[in-house]
C-alpha cells in the first residue's frame, strides 16, 4: 500500500509538470500553424520592415514595424518608471523600515498587484489623460507617456516584492561584516546588499518587462492605438497586443488578416523568449 501511494504520488506530480510543458508546446504549435500561412501572401520583408499597418483597407498592408516600436516604447517607459520606484520600495521595506511600517506597507503594495488591469486602464483614460491635457498642455492624453505611467504603476508591485524577497535572503552576516568594517548604512546597502541580491533583482526587472509587454487592456485604453513609429513620448502608439486583441474580434476566420494577427503573436512570443533566454544564459549561469 505504501509503495502504491509512493508511485501514485510520483505519477501525479509528474503529470502536473508535464501538463504545463504540453500546454506550452500546444500554444507554440498553434501560433506557428496559424501565423505562417500569412507569409504565402505577405513577404517577411514587408512584415518586419514596413510600418504601414492597414489590414482592412482596399490595398491591405501588413507592416508590423510600427507595432513593434509601439510595444517597445510603452514597455521601456514603464520600466523607467517602475524600476527606480520598485527597487526603492524594496530597499526601504527590507532595509530601512521598522517592522510596524513594514507590516502596513507590504500588504498595501501587494493590493496594488491585485487590481485588475481594466481598472488601471479606466484610471488612465478617465483621470490621468484629461489631467495631463489640462496640466502639461499636450494635445491628447492617449500616448506613450500616459501608458508608461499606468503600466509602470502596474508593475511596481512585481518588481518591489520580488526584489524585496531577494534582498531579505542576503545573509545577516554580510551586513554585519560591512558595518564592522566601518561602512555606513548607505554604503552597506549599495555596495554589499544590492550586489549580493543582484540575480533576484534583475529577475524582477525581467518579470516586470514580460508583464508590461504582454499587457493588453491598459494599452488598448490609454496608448492611443495609432500605428506609427513614435517620434516623441507624447505620440500615440499601437502595441502588438492592441492589434491582436482588438482586430481578432472582427476578422474573417482564415483570412490573411486573421493569420497576420497570429504572426504578431509569434513576434511577441519571440521577444519575451529572447529576453528570458538572455537572462537565463548571462545572469543566472554566471552567478551559479
Amino acid at each position: 500500500m505504501k509503495v502504491f501511494k509512493e508511485i501514485l504520488f510520483k505519477a501525479v506530480t509528474y503529470f502536473a509538470a508535464i501538463f504545463s510543458i504540453l500546454a506550452l508546446f500546444g500554444i507554440i504549435l498553434t501560433l506557428f500553424m496559424e501565423g505562417i500561412p500569412m507569409f504565402q501572401e505577405v513577404s517577411l520583408r514587408e512584415f518586419l520592415f514596413s510600418s504601414a499597418w492597414y489590414p482592412t483597407n482596399e490595398h491591405q498592408s501588413f507592416g508590423a514595424l510600427a507595432l513593434f516600436f509601439g510595444s517597445l516604447a510603452v514597455t521601456i517607459g514603464a520600466l523607467v518608471i517602475a524600476v527606480p520606484i520598485g527597487l526603492g520600495t524594496a530597499v526601504y521595506i527590507s532595509e530601512i523600515a521598522g517592522s510596524r511600517t513594514k507590516e502596513i506597507i507590504k500588504p498595501m503594495i501587494e493590493l496594488l498587484a491585485g487590481i485588475p488591469s481594466v481598472v488601471y486602464g479606466l484610471f488612465g483614460m478617465a483621470f490621468l489623460a484629461p489631467f495631463l491635457i489640462r496640466n502639461i498642455g499636450i494635445d491628447s492624453g492617449l500616448n506613450i507617456f500616459t501608458a508608461s505611467i499606468v503600466l509602470g504603476i502596474m508593475i511596481i508591485p512585481i518588481i518591489s516584492s520580488m526584489s524585496e524577497d531577494a534582498l531579505s535572503t542576503v545573509p545577516r552576516a554580510l551586513r554585519e561584516a560591512s558595518y564592522g568594517l566601518g561602512a555606513t548604512r548607505w554604503e552597506t546597502i549599495t555596495r554589499v546588499v544590492i550586489p549580493s541580491a543582484k540575480t533576484g533583482i534583475i529577475g524582477s526587472f525581467v518579470l516586470g518587462f514580460g508583464r508590461a509587454i504582454g499587457e493588453t487592456m491598459v494599452v488598448i485604453m490609454v496608448a492611443g492605438g495609432a500605428a506609427q513609429i513614435p517620434s516623441s513620448v507624447f505620440d500615440p502608439v499601437r502595441p502588438l497586443t492592441t492589434s491582436i486583441a482588438v482586430e481578432m474580434a472582427e476578422t474573417v476566420l482564415g483570412s490573411i488578416h486573421f493569420h497576420s494577427l497570429f504572426a504578431l503573436a509569434i513576434m511577441l512570443f519571440i521577444i519575451t523568449f529572447i529576453t528570458n533566454l538572455f537572462t537565463e544564459l548571462f545572469l543566472f549561469k554566471k552567478v551559479k
Binding site: N57, E58, G224, G225, A226
Partner: peptide
C-alpha cells in the same frame, strides 16, 4: 472615399 487615414491618428475601440 477609401483614402488611407494618416498613421498618427488615434484609434479607439
Amino acid at each position: 472615399k477609401k483614402q488611407n487615414i494618416v498613421q498618427n491618428c488615434i484609434m479607439v475601440a
